[in-house]
């Protein structure tokens, strides 16, 4: 029983973080139709900036996170301008490949600046353990769930209530109609990249709290694909549910059967879902016409 609770809490924490990371992915896909293979590297950069802010510069962690957000905004806009804008109208393969190239460049930047050694994230949230129904587990998992939920709620509120959030949803719905209504589609594109990078700062920091700051953060980010496919590429509730499904199965299988299998199970789930529902659980079914 205590193992079960421990695995469930870990799974929920992983799931919440994955949902947050997937949100950035879905954001870009919905608004711009681009599949961002560099989302894992966005997490990586977010984690490293916050780490460097706290450890290297000695800032308070709130300031460090704000710094991370600022860097993320600039990075998102620069990437959209320099890499993605020339690719408008190119084939899907080309756009996917350009983001794969981008992920290689970003990863090499991180490796070049900070090397490959594993570093501990400084104590942002308390690292004590509490016992819950007889099972000890670290409090930082609970914090991770809480922070991820707050961030997700914040983004949801942004989309529902704010001026720009509504504009972004309009662009995602129909670019031409949005343009006619006076929305600057270019600006929305840049903004969705910036926002995706910002969500990755939170996601990356939370991942780093759990597994440490290293290139592994980006590997964790690879799971985002499993999440978005299970949930449906263009669905934000799908990202949340997909995150929880993947996070929990990964922990249960890893804990009860075999840790190695736990790493692979997300992909098995993903293939099974695709075989039954080719557009994911909540993805919009596209009817194509020639």
């Amino acid at each position: 029983m205590s193992t079960f609770i421990q695995l469930t809490v870990n799974g929920l924490a992983n799931g919440a973080i994955l949902a947050l990371a997937a949100l950035g992915f879905v954001l870009i896909f919905k608004a711009t139709g681009v599949v961002n293979f560099a989302q894992g590297e966005f997490l990586l950069i977010g984690a490293y900036i916050v780490w460097a802010g706290v450890v290297t510069l000695g800032l308070h962690w709130v300031v460090a996170v704000l710094l991370g957000v600022a860097v993320a905004v600039v990075m998102g806009i620069v990437i959209e301008r320099s890499v993605l804008r020339p690719m408008v109208g190119e084939s899907a393969i080309a756009v996917i490949m350009v983001t794969i190239g981008l992920s290689a460049v970003l990863r090499s930047l991180v490796q070049g600046i900070w090397g490959t050694t594993l570093r501990r994230m400084p104590e942002i949230v308390p690292e004590t353990s509490v016992s819950l129904l007889g099972a000890p587990f670290p409090v930082n998992r609970l914090w991770a769930i809480g922070i991820a939920l707050v961030a997700l709620g914040g983004f949801a509120l942004f989309f529902r209530k704010s001026h720009y959030g509504v504009a972004m949803r309009a662009v995602a719905d129909d670019q031409q109609a949005a343009m006619v209504m006076g929305i600057s589609v270019r600006r929305i594109f840049a903004m969705s990249w910036a926002l995706a990078a910002v969500s990755a700062v939170f996601g990356g920091t939370l991942v780093a709290i759990m597994i440490g700051v290293s290139i592994e953060v980006a590997t964790f980010g690879l799971l985002v694909f499993a999440v978005v496919i299970v949930g449906g590429l263009d669905s934000i509730p799908g990202a949340l549910l997909g995150g929880l499904i993947i996070g929990l199965t990964r922990q249960y299988v890893g804990g009860y059967i075999d840790p190695g299998l736990g790493e692979v199970i997300p992909y098995i789930v993903l293939v099974l879902v695709l075989l039954v529902k080719p557009y994911g659980l909540f993805g919009e079914v596209r009817i194509e016409r020639v």
Binding site: V83, I100, G101, L102, S103, A104, S108, L109, G112
Partner: peptide, 15 residues
């Protein structure tokens, strides 16, 4: 790191 970066850059620039 340089190798990886050059790989990525080559892909991006070609595309």
């Amino acid at each position: 790191a340089v190798q990886l970066g050059v790989f990525g850059l080559v892909i991006i620039l070609f595309l």
